[in-house]
Design a protein around this nucleic acid. Sequence first.
RNA 1: GUCCGGUUAGCUCAGCUGGUAGAGCGCUACAUUGACAUUGUAGAGGUCACAGGUUCAAGUCCUGUAUCGGACACCA
Length: 738
Amino acid sequence: MEEKQQPNIPEIFLSPYEPKEHEDSLYEMWNDSGFFNPDTCVKAGVVDESKDPFSIVLPPPNVTGVLHMGHAAMLAVEDILVRYNRMIGRETLWIPGTDSAALATQSKVEGIIYKKEKKRRHDIGREELLARIDDFVEDSKNTIINQTKKMGSSLDWSRYAFTMDEKRYDAVMEAFIRMYNDGLIYRGARSVNWDPAMQTTVSDDEVEYVETNSPFYYFKYGPFTIGTVRPETKFGDKYVVMHPDDERYKEYEHGQTIEVEWINGPITATIIKDEAADPEMGSGVMTITPWHSTVDFEIAERHGLDREPIIDERGILLPIAGEFAGQHIKKARAAIVEKMTEKGLVEKVDEKNINKVATNSRGGGTIEPQIKEQWFINVNKEFSMGHSEIPGINEGDTMTLKSLMIKAVENEGISILPERFERVYYNWINNLHDWCISRQIWYGHRIPAWFKDGEVTVQKDSPGDGWEQDPDTLDTWFSSGLWTMSTLGWPEQTPDLKKFHPTSVLETGYDILFFWVARMILMSTYLTGQAPFKNVYLHGLVRDQKGKKMSKSLGNIIDPLDMIDKFGTDATRLSLIIGAAPGNDMPLSEDKVRGYKKFANKIWNISRFVLTSIADADWDTAPTYSERDQEILNDLKATVTEVTKNIEEFNLYLAGERAYHYVWHELADKILEESKPIISGDNAEAKLARQYVLRECLVTSLKLLHPFMPFVTETIWQNAPDEIKDQDILMVAKWPVH
RNA sequence: GUCCGGUUAGCUCAGCUGGUAGAGCGCUACAUUGACAUUGUAGAGGUCACAGGUUCAAGUCCUGUAUCGGACACCA
C-alpha cells in the first residue's frame, strides 16, 4: 500500500485558526521589532527614503474614554493605509495620541468628587481640582491606549502625544501669542453662548438645537403685537423693530418714541426700522433683547442701541425685573405671564408651538446668550499672507481666515473625500462668525494673558509683580486645531515636521468636519503656510443592522472588544471595511463579523494546503509553466493591480472585497481544487511549476490581505518556511509587483 | 428657508468618465468527511422610485414629480 506522504509542516496548522492565541503576542512582536517607527524601517532598509513619506495623525480619542465601534472603524481604515504604504516602501508614520477633552473630563471628575465628598469645584479650588484631574487622567489613559493596540494599530508609540503635555502646551502658547500679535485674536464684549449649568461659554458648533414644545405668546406692546417664547427676557425691551418697507407701519418713523404700558409699568419705546424684521413673520413687529440674543445684539450694534442684562450668569432675574428679581427664569415665566394676563397684555397663546432650544451638546444645560468679555478669533479680518506653500495662495496676498480656509480646499491643496463634503464645508465657512475661544473651566490650556490696572499683556510667563493671569482656558478645539503640527514638533522646525508635514491623510468621521477638520485647516494654513493634510477621508457612522444609531437606550450597541474576543481582530476589522464606502454610514451586525471569522479560517486552511503541497519542492530548479499556470499568474497580477489601485484611491471597501473574492472564490475554489491532481500526480515538471504557482499565489495573497487582516496573515507568515519569504516579518515585506 | 444625499435581488449595499445589471448575507436543490469545527456546485429572485428628454444606445447624462434622510441657517 502506498503511504500518503505527510510532509513536515508546523503542527499549528492542524487545528483551526484561533485568533486569541496569537494576537497579543504578535502585537508585542511587531512593537518590539521597532518597525512601527519609520526611523527603524529606514535603518533596516525596508523603506526607501527617496520615496514620498506617508503620515497620518490619529484623531486622538478622549483620554478617559473607552473604545467604541467608531474608533474601531477609524483605526481599521488608518491601519490599512499605514500598513499598505509601509509595504510599498514609503517612510510611514502614524502618530498616536489622546485628547484631554477638557469640558467632558472636568465635569466627569467634578461629578465623581461631588458624589464622594459632596464638594463642588469652588470648595476644593483650582489647583486641587487640576491635580485630581491629572490623577484621574493618568489612571484611565491606559484603558484607551490598550484598546487601541487590540485593534492591531501599527502606531509609533515612541511619538505618543497628549493634548495637555508640555510640548503641545508650548505649541498652543505660541499659536495664541502669534495670532494675538497679528490682530487675529482679540478680546471683546460680544454675544456668546453661555451655559448657566456649566458656567462657561460654548462655541457655536457645540450648541445643539433641540426641538421642544414651548408656548408662543402674543403680547400687546402699545399699538403693536409682538410674539415671544421667552417672556422672562422681555423686561428691558424698549426698542420696537419693523422692516423699513412694511406698508402697515409706514406711519411710524425710525427713531420715533412712543409710550407703552409694559410688564412693570409704562416705558418709552423707540421705533427702529431694520431689515432683520421679517414682515411675513407674525405681525412683522418685534421687540429686542440685545443682551440675551445674538440676532438682537447685531441689530443693536447697527443702530448703537442700549443693552442691559436681564438675567445673571446663573439664570436668575436681575433687579430690572422688579418684583420678579431674584427668581430663576424657569420658575418666573409662568408668574410673568400670569401678571401680564391680569394686565390685559396677553392677546393669544399658541400652546402647541414647537421651538428649537439651544442646548450645550457637551452634556450641559440650556444655552443663555449673554454679552460677555471674551477672547475671539476674528475670521473676517484682512491680513497679508506670510510664507505659503498652498496652491493658488502667494506670500503677500490679502487674505482673511475665511478666505484662506476656502482657498486651501478650492485650489485642491486639500481634497475632501467624498467630494460632496466640500460643499458642506464651504457652506459652514460662509456662515461662520468670530470664534469664541475662551472657556470658564479650569482644565485646559490657560490663556496667556495678564492683567494689571486695566492693562493687558499677552505672553507665556508672568510679566512681574501684580500681574494676574486670565483665569480662563482655551476651547479644546483650539489646541486640537494644531494637532498635525504640534505632534510633529511645531513650533520647532524639527526633522519630523519637515519630513511629515503636511500629513498625507486625515481620516475621521464626517460629524467632526467642522469642529476639527476646518480648524486644523485654519491653524495650519495661517501659522505655517502649509495645509495640515493633503487628503481628508471622512468615514460614516457605524450603525446597527437596521441602520439605527447605536445607543445605550436602544440596547443595540456592538462592542468592538466583545467582537474581538469572539471572532478576532481581523474579522472585526474586515467587517468595518467591506461595504463601507467613504462618507456612508455602515450597518454592522454580529453575523457579518462572524462571516469574516470564517474567512480568516479559510485563509488558514488555504495556507495549510499550499504549504503542504510545496513542502517537497525543489526551488533550485527553474519552473516550466503551462498555459494555465501562466494564466493563473496573470490573473493574480491583475488582482494585485486592482487592489492596489483601489487602495490608492481610498476605496478600501472595493479593495477588501476584491481581495476577499479572489482568495476565496478564485484561489481556494478553483486553483487549489485543480491543483490537487497535479500535486499528487506523476508529472514532475508540471508539479514543480504548479508548486511555484501556488507559492506565488499564497505569498501574494498574504501580502494583499495583510493590511486588512494583519494577525492571521502574520501568524501564517511566521510559521511558513523561510525560503518563501523576502522579510522575516510580513508587516515590512515588499508589496507585490503591480 | 438654503444646500446635499438616497430610492438597484427578500435584507445590506456596489456599479468611476453611458454599451441591455453585480457582491455579501439569506433562500432552494444536489454533492462532499475533504486543505476547511464544513465546504463546493447549480439555481430561483430585479419593468435599476415615477414621468419626460438627449443619444444608435441610459441605473449611468438633463428636466420634473414622489418619497426617505442629512447638514446648515432662521425662529420676534
